[in-house]
Every structure is written in C-alpha cells, then in structure tokens.
Write a protein that binds this DNA or RNA. Structure first.
Lengths: 198, 198
DNA sequence: GTCTATACCTGGATAGAC
DNA sequence: GTCTATCCAGGTATAGAC
C-alpha cells in the first residue's frame, strides 16, 4: 500500500488503469499480460512485482471497484432516511456512475467474475447488493414497500435499471444513460410501492 | 444437416449437449476441446468434423437455443391477444424454461457471448428481445402500457424477472424459480400498466 | 466418419541482470 | 523496483491412418 508516489503516478495504479480498460472492452480471457504491459507502458516484471498473477490483478481491480460502490451506497444510507429516498439515490448513483465511469460499471456488473475468480461470490450476493437488499427489506417492514418476497422486491425495483444499463453498455442504447433515470425510477418504485405511497 | 440417425443418437447432438453442459458450468474459456471430447465421449476428430472450430461450435449452440426461444415467443404472440397476456406468458416461459433447462438459460442469458463470438449481436438486441420490445411497444400504442420510453418500459417489465433468474442461476436463490413467478409478474406489470389497467 | 498422434503457438510466469 | 529474455504448459487445430 505504501508505494512511493514521487512526481510520477505510481506504477501500480498505471497497471490497474490499463487492466480496467482492457478487461472491460476485451474481457479477461482476451487480454494477455503482454497486452496489459503494452497498454500500461510498463514491463512484465513490474506487473508481477505488484501482483502475484493475472487472477490476483483481476481480483484487486474488482475489490477496489466494489469498495468504491459500497462506500457510495453507505453514504446514501446515512444521508437519506426513508427506503424510498435511499433507493432513489442508490439508483441515481448507478446511472451517474455508468455515465462517468462506464468501464468500471462494465467490469463490475457485466463480467462473469466466477469464470476467472473462482472464489469470489457472485456479484448479486456481494456486499453492495446485500446492502440494497437490506434497505428494501426494511422498507417492507416499515410498510413503505408492499409485502412481497424481499428478493422479488429488490430485483423488481432495480432490475429495470440494471437491465437498461446493460443495454447501454452493450451499445444497444445511446447515452447518456442518466436521461432515462427518472422514468426508470418511477417504474421501479411503482412496481413495489405500498398502496399508501403513491 | 442430413446426418445419419441410425439407432444411436447422432454425434453432432452428443457434442452439442456436452458443450452446453461444460460451457454453462465452466464457461467458454475454461472449457477445452479435450474437455468436450471427454464429456461427449467422442474423438477430437469428430468434433472438428462437425464444427470448423471452437467458436463455430459455440455459435451453433447459441443459434439453436436462440431459435428455440424465438419459436416459443412467436407461439405466445399467436396464442394471446393483448400486450398484458402476451407479456405474462412470455415471462412465464422464461421462468419455466429456467427450471426445466437451466443450462440453456444460463448459456443464453449469462455468457458474455461477444467475448468469444465477436460478430454476434449482444443478446439484448437479438431477436427474442426484439420481439418482446415490439410487444411492449404495441402495448404503449394501444394504451395498455403507460406512455414511457419503450426501452424503459421493456426493461422495467422484464428486468426484475431476468435479475431474479440470474440470482437463481448464480446459486444465490433456491429454486424452483417458478414459485416467484406470480409476484414478479405482478410487480413488473404494475411498473408499466396504464392507470386503467389495474 | 471416426480415430490417434502430433505440430504449432499463444500466453502465463520465472530468472536474473541492473 | 524495473527491466529483458526465456521457459514451458496447455490448448487449438491438422495430418493422415483406418
């Protein structure tokens, strides 16, 4: 962690950036260490100095991005009070992050992580999704959300947004994706809102 | 196409079945031709007799499954009259197909096809999804569905279902997935139904 | 049409100089 | 810490017998 940061950007970060670019556009398996070496403009030796192998590199990148997402969701939960406000802010974050950082979103949401990181839990049962699941679960308890299965409620609320983001990341939908936010949110919330809420 | 089918199951089919099993569980890149050879209990020579290369094999499997899906959706469209009935039947098909044929569903919906079939269109812009898109679009024109962006309407209606199916295929949700159908459908339709419809 | 044996090469990882 | 050169396994695809 305490690598020198003298003037030039540190190499570790350089490598991670190149990796993100290539993994998100070409995929893990279509990206060789040699490709990363070229893109990052470092030597193979440096890559293996900072990361023990290709999988570790993928994993480090994944963990950083998941962490970033978790921090954002946690912040939202602290700032907002009701389930509705929290979910709305979380969905907005997904949209704005997609526009500002499509590669990160692509890598985190789209890649089949288990195919190259056997030990990692599927993204849908990882921490960010668990947080969202909890928020929705509380909404059910409070009566803000209709009494349906919590998994169904969560997927029904966010499924549309995620699907739309996939469509965009695929190139099947023109961006910026934020312009679809309001409508998507309205649909999602309508799907699960308790009768009193709308 | 006109391969002999004398008594024993033809080898082409044997190979496709083995491929489906391995690709859906291990992924395209983690499955070698040798693995397929072993699983299908044929020789490498046979595989290359029926398929020019690994990518062609993946593609043939993909095309067959997409075709099956398209036929099912087409049948639904013929049988049902309203947008609501059609969408409900299509969603039901997704759920029941997931239960009866999880490997096919996994391969068709989950794999990052573009990573190994560069020329294939992303699944969300492929024919089955286009059919669904059309059905929803007509629903908007007929006033059955609220006047929102058609892409938003389609993803809002089916996003929850697809997400839930992913969750199940990931092993994050216990099956059979059909038990979640009714609730998921209600949420999905509620998301986009015109005011008069419910 | 089916098989085995093998050619060939990509690409992950290491060695070791600086 | 950074680099280049190199090793070597694994995997796709082919050759050619039967």
């Amino acid at each position: 962690m305490e690598t020198a940061r003298v003037g030039t950007v540190d190499k570790r970060e350089q490598i991670l950036q190149a990796t993100l670019k290539l993994f998100s556009s070409e995929g893990f398996f279509n990206t060789s260490i040699h490709d990363i070496r070229r893109e990052a403009d470092v030597s193979i030796g440096s890559i293996y100095h900072y990361f023990t192998n290709k999988e570790t590199l993928a994993r480090a990148l994944y963990d950083e991005l998941v962490d970033e997402m978790v921090r954002a969701i946690r912040a939202v939960i602290l700032e907002q009070d009701t389930c509705q406000e929290r979910c709305r802010a979380i969905m907005r974050f997904f949209f704005s992050w997609t526009d500002s950082n499509p590669q990160s979103m692509h890598y985190i949401m789209y890649a089949r992580h288990q195919e190259f990181m056997p030990e990692v839990k599927p993204i849908c049962s990882s921490e960010p999704f668990f947080l969202v699941f909890q928020v929705v679960g509380e909404g059910i308890e409070q009566g803000e959300v209709r009494a349906v299965n919590p998994a169904v409620a969560t997927t029904s609320l966010f499924g549309g947004a995620i699907r739309l983001i996939h469509l965009y990341l695929d190139g099947s939908l023109e961006g910026p994706v934020e312009k679809y936010f309001e409508e998507t949110w309205q649909c999602g919330w309508r799907a699960i809102a308790a009768a009193t809420s709308h």
